[in-house]
Design a protein around this nucleic acid. Structure first.
Lengths: 220, 220
DNA sequence: GTCTATAAGGTGATAGAC
DNA sequence: GTCTATCACCTTATAGAC
């Protein structure tokens, strides 16, 4: 329900609409760009995967760069609503943390290449952060950290959380613990010497252990 | 001192030796490959950066792939000795954690693209993990986790550490907290809206706060 | 909208003179 | 060892028939 799919708006009926071909191309483009990046991806490979002619890619999206941008925008928009939802929900800080960890691990476990894709692209084009992320949701995203900070200070005053915890740092730590293991999944998996199934269990178990790890770290 | 540089062994004198041109190429190749990856990098750009003719790259390294492999090997070898050194030192677990966090943040802060580079490359070619990492140091690396596990169990029995902490998970968490913020540095920096200098301070301060965060999380 | 054929430009790699 | 010139190939993109 919070998922945002690829779409174009039909000017006449204002209905979400897209041709099957366009949809197939976008799904294949996502698959290939996620794994190989902008430079590594081949238009031919995307066309083959979608089962359409290569010329169709240019007919619908003009150029490789524009197709990539569409995929990138959609990837960002598949994440931000989830984050917003958790950060803005009415609940105490510890519930938010629990919820956020679950959401992050669930979301990025479904799309293992997503975090790498976004981080790599934003590293090479940092200006995209403004166009695609920080301006989203009416700029509300930039106000999340002050908001969390406020809630954190209140909890500190109540004595529920250590006084030396900083909101920016806490958020960075939560993101780190949830995303890094997924970004480096192949490395972790081979280093631990476990198969796909055990790796999935390891990651799913982390929804609990990471939450516990964080709560233990911030409690007085 | 733990740094491992690019080198070739002079057969006659068994001395580390390399021509200035070769060295310049490798340094420039490192710079360009780190930032743009294998597919994004251009041989011409590497040559320009090194101030040598493009043909020289092929004279010394035959192909782009072989040049890339040299850079990748060197990148891995700039990390593993540091990790080994910390993991194998004779000290209690908490000292090791403190030391490891400092080392990781210092090392990867000096080379901000290094972690992204290694993770991305290993994600696309997981078999390189065996050739370049797990086989290193006589395969000792695979024995680190059991070794840490042993030390962890001893500390748990002494009541110094929570009984539900697992060694694999602890190592993954430490790596996450140290590396992810550096991998996503541009995103974090722009989201927090701070300049380069404050970002550097933020990261350096993390050497203390991350250590504290981890120790608080694992204490009973 | 979909296809084939082809243009246009760039990239890794090599031959050969110095 | 170093340079220039050039090849062979690949990739994006487009023109034009259907």
């Amino acid at each position: 329900m919070l998922q945002v799919a690829f779409y174009t708006i039909d000017q006449k009926h204002m209905i979400l609409k897209k041709t099957p071909t366009e949809e197939k191309i976008l799904l294949s483009a996502k698959k290939v760009f996620y794994q190989k990046g902008l430079k590594g991806a081949r238009m031919q490979e995307i066309a083959d995967d979608a089962g359409v002619n290569k010329a169709m890619l240019h007919y619908y999206f003009r150029s490789k760069d524009k197709l990539f941008d569409k995929v990138f925008e959609a990837s960002v928009q598949s994440v931000t609503p989830v984050l917003m939802h958790v950060f803005l929900e009415e609940s105490d800080l510890k519930s938010k943390i629990t919820h956020l960890v679950e959401m992050l691990i669930d979301l990025f476990l479904k799309e293992p290449y997503l975090s790498n894709f976004i981080i790599n692209e934003l590293s090479q084009n940092p200006e995209k952060l403004f166009n695609n992320v920080l301006h989203l949701e009416g700029g509300v995203i930039g106000k999340i950290i002050p908001l969390i900070n406020e809630q954190l200070q209140a909890e500190i005053e109540r004595g529920n959380i250590r006084s030396d915890i900083r909101s920016a740092e806490l958020i960075v730590n939560i993101m780190s613990l949830c995303l890094f293991p997924i970004m480096s999944q192949s490395v972790v998996q081979k280093t631990l010497g476990i198969d796909d199934e055990r790796m999935l269990r390891f990651m799913n178990k982390r929804k609990l252990t990471v939450t516990q790890f964080i709560l233990d770290a911030i409690e007085p």
